[in-house]
């Protein structure tokens, strides 16, 4: 599973961090979200399927619709 964030769209609401704290964090300087590469995303092939529910929930609640989870229908 590959997770991507369109950082130009991100509004820094932090909803992804709330629902997927193992997958997402926010930049200190402006609150823009990023995918944690020292988390499961750093593993070969990205996070395992056990993280899919959290990733998809994050994509669903993201107010800017900035999160894409590869291999799923949005």
């Amino acid at each position: 599973m590959r997770i991507t964030i369109d950082q130009d769209r991100c509004v820094g609401a932090g909803q992804c961090v709330l629902v997927g704290p193992d997958l997402f964090d926010q930049r200190d300087e402006d609150g823009v979200a990023f995918v944690l590469t020292d988390g499961p995303e750093g593993a070969a092939g990205g996070p395992g399927e056990e993280h899919r529910a959290a990733a998809e929930e994050a994509a669903r609640v993201c107010p800017a619709a900035a999160i894409t989870v590869a291999g799923t229908e949005r």
Partner: peptide, 15 residues
Amino acid sequence: HLRQRRRLTRDFTVK
């Protein structure tokens, strides 16, 4: 809007 909002977001992040 987003340019202005980003001046404020750092103080309200989850962390």
